[in-house]
């Protein structure tokens, strides 16, 4: 009886296996979280570290990886930017079709001049973006990125969401990139999305 059951289970698996393989081929796998249908991300109206006005339309045809941060952030932001510099190196020629954007959540203290000094240290191709308080708030909200700035004994404590988002070359936000993703995983996801175009 038991043997027969196992036999039946094996037969069932053998029948199902080809379907599973087909499904695997159809649905792409990502290291990041697929948010393609969540309609994440609003319009971008900000200035980069060189003083140029930027919108998402400037980057059509490229994969955009966007993060939020602040320059006085001691760990997470430099680590994220260093990791993205490594992603660019891993991408090789595909890096030309990839744009990293880093939006300050603290435009009061992160001046354009400071962003100009800070951002190219990681990679000269990265753009540091700065908007008004209202523009910052509405862009962060559209990406479900939370932040707040608290004044404390001569400094400002900033809370913020460290994850990034990947936007495809058509301008659709496709993946959420959690903070613990490695450079290899992010590069793999960028390549997967670029390969779909």
């Amino acid at each position: 009886m038991r043997i027969r059951l196992i036999g039946a289970a094996a037969l069932l698996l053998a029948l199902l296996a080809p379907c599973a393989v087909t499904a695997e081929e159809v649905a792409p796998t990502y290291f990041g979280k697929d948010v393609s249908t969540a309609k994440i991300g609003g319009p971008l109206h900000m200035t980069d570290q060189n003083g140029r006005r930027r919108s998402f339309e400037d980057f059509r045809g490229k994969v955009v990886v966007i993060f939020f941060g602040y320059t006085r952030c001691p760990d997470v932001c430099p680590t994220t930017l260093s990791r993205m510099a490594q992603v660019m190196r891993l991408l090789g020629p595909d890096a030309e079709r990839t744009q990293v954007l880093w939006v300050t959540v603290d435009p009061k203290r992160d001046t354009q001049a400071l962003l100009h000094n800070f951002i190219p240290h990681f990679d000269a191709r990265f753009l540091g973006l700065r908007g008004t308080l209202a523009q910052t708030e509405s862009l962060a909200k559209s990406f479900h990125v939370g932040y707040q700035i608290l004044k404390y004994q001569g400094t400002f404590l900033v809370d913020h969401s460290p994850e990034g988002y990947l936007i495809d070359p058509a301008g659709v936000t496709r993946l959420k990139l959690p903070y613990d993703m490695t450079a290899e995983q992010i590069a793999a996801d960028v390549r997967t999305i670029l390969g779909q175009q």
């Binding site: 290291f31 697929d34 930017l81 993703m181 450079a183 995983q185």
Partner: peptide, 18 residues
């Protein structure tokens, strides 16, 4: 350096999602 990672990049959190 400013770019110094604070800790080795996490390696053991590989997770594939569909």
């Amino acid at each position: 350096a400013l770019t110094e990672p604070s800790a080795p990049a996490p390696m053991d959190h590989a997770h594939m999602q569909h």
